Amino acid sequence: MLIDIFHDTVCPWCRIGKKHLFDALAQRQEQEVHIRWHPFLLDNTVPAEGYEFRSFMQNRKGIKAEEIQQIFDNAQRAGEAAGVKLDFDKIRLAVNTKLSHQLIALAPANVKNDVVEAIYQAYFEDGLNIGNFDVIVAIGTAYQMDASELKSQLNDRAVSDAVIAESTFARLNGINSVPFFVINDKVKVNGSHSVEVFLETLNRAALLDIPAKI
């Protein structure tokens, strides 16, 4: 089974959706699964140093402080129900996620899923700036990526351009929100949904017996 996941690393619902999907996949252990991660940059105009988080989110959504807190509370409760931590009190900066997606693209296949989760944890649990070069290098080296080589690759304009191009391609092909999942190039799921919904979708995709193109 082939699963394409479009996400951004500062999207709380993407982390929740990932957890729900992986919990559903755990109930289908008999089937080999290949996952491809795709960047969807929610705001590539954010500078490397980031913006103050709460004021940025209020301005972005055009709402008051108490309303943005309600949004955070709802997401945090959904995260707790899913089994993931979303500590919005720890998050100080709205950050640019391009560099984090470059790391995901560069990560070896056998640790890529773990690197994705480590990035989510760094932002939503530790409140780190995942748009910071040193933070991203530290995450990569924790998964046995060579520091010197990784720094060179992250500074490669071609890697950066590829992330932007892929994010733009997703939007041009009708994806306007994340998380967004495509199973076996055919069955689409838009949103975080429940484990049960993902399990039903995975079962339906398997029954369709669509060849996966890797």
Rank of each mutant, 00 (worst) to 15 (best):
A205M: 10
I3P: 05
L103E: 03
T45Q: 14
I136C: 04
V178T: 11
N44M: 12
I214T: 08
A105G: 05
D185G: 10
G131H: 06
V115E: 02
A212W: 07
S194F: 09
L25G: 08
A142S: 10
W37L: 04
T168R: 14
N74P: 12
Q70R: 08
G50W: 02
F133R: 14
Q70C: 03
T141H: 00
K98G: 14
L42Q: 03
A48S: 15
G127F: 00
S152R: 13
K213Y: 08
D161L: 13
P179R: 04
E66P: 01
L93W: 00
Q31F: 07
R60I: 10
G83H: 05
S148M: 12
K98F: 13
Q76W: 00
D209G: 14
T201V: 15
L93F: 04
K112A: 07
H193Q: 14
N176L: 05
I183V: 10
W13N: 04
A94R: 15
A165S: 11
I119V: 13
W37R: 04
A147H: 09
V115M: 03
L86A: 06
V95S: 02
E80I: 06
A26I: 04
L42E: 03
V159L: 04
D134Q: 11
D134H: 02
T97N: 02
Q76L: 03
K188D: 09
I175K: 05
V84L: 06
T9V: 11
L207I: 12
P179W: 00
H34S: 10
R54P: 02
W37P: 06
V116K: 08
T9L: 13
R157A: 15
S160L: 14
I139N: 01
A158T: 15
Q31R: 13
L2Q: 11
D126G: 00
I119E: 03
E117D: 14
G79E: 07
K61M: 13
Y123Q: 03
A82D: 08
W37C: 06
K188F: 12
A78L: 07
K90V: 05
S194I: 09
L2S: 07
R36Q: 13
L207K: 11
I104M: 00
A118H: 05
E66T: 01
F40L: 00
F6A: 06
